[in-house]
Amino acid sequence: MWSRSSDGRRIAAITVIGTAIVLPLVVFVLGPNMPPGKATEVAKGQVTDNTVLLVVMTPFTVFILGYLVYAIVVFRAPKGETELRDGASMRGHMPSQIAWLVTTTAAVLFLAIFGTTELLANNGAGSGSGPNPVAKPSGAMLPVQVIGQQWEFTYRYPTYGGVETAELVLPAGQEVAFHVTSLDVVHSFWAYELGVKADANPGVDNVAYVKPTKIGTFQIRCAELCGLWHGYMFDTGRVVGAADFNTWIAAQRKQFAGVEKYLPKYSPSYSPDPTFRAG
């Protein structure tokens, strides 16, 4: 019934033609504009990922929407028909059920395998991957600790004497390992353009890798509700050239030299005195 009827052929045609029209738009117009942009390797990976998801969804979306519109237009009971007349008694159609099952299963398995590959190939794809991520980049890394507290982020550079800064500055072309932790409640370090998001949990060292490639600024927001001034917990970071970075960090070390002795020694996480009901 399904496949032999002219209705079935028309819906198949709508799906195929619709997909043929929409797919290039998705790949060439929408895809390149998907978030979060191309400022880092992982961000580029995420754009690709988002595009692939859109591509996989397109035929299903076109089919379902095309079918819905077609059904509403064509299978509508004639206007003014007052007597209730039943449609044909059809309680199922095994071939189309199996076809649907096979197609959706294939899509789902593809998505899961693709997502896993992307996750591992991109060293966690910018996500907070716990204290000991399985996939890590090879080669030298600049460790940067991100400390969330109510209601600001501060940053420590352990390879530069553990200097603590209020601003996040990264050298371009250098693989960075963010070590995200919190002093009080759960925050989430979200560097939008970098394609990085990692929860800041008290007592936990949450690691995310990223390699900024484009010089410029990026926005940082707290993405986990953390109390009163959560909405004001934002910041702007900078990606600069290697030489600029060295100048900047040297200046920071000089500026904060006096403060350094009051800071706790650098550690993957900190345990402040239990201050219950602070604030």
């Binding site: 399904w2 009827s5 209705d7 379902i64 079918y67 819905l68 059904a71 509403i72 299978f75 509508r76 009971a77 028909e81 007349r85 039943d86 449609g87 044909a88 059809m90 199922g92 159609h93 189309s96 059920q97 649907w100 099952l101 959706t104 299963t105 789902v108 998505l111 899961a112 997502g115 896993t116 996750l119």
Partner: peptide, 30 residues
């Protein structure tokens, strides 16, 4: 990866609901 897989698998039974809804509309008198 496991939770990614299981989350995507849950869209299969959700898809059953969709195909049943679409199938019910088929050649109906809406």
């Amino acid at each position: 990866p496991f939770y990614m897989l299981s989350t995507e698998i849950i869209s299969l039974p959700t898809g059953f609901i969709f195909i049943c809804a679409l199938g019910t509309l088929w050649k109906g008198r809406i």
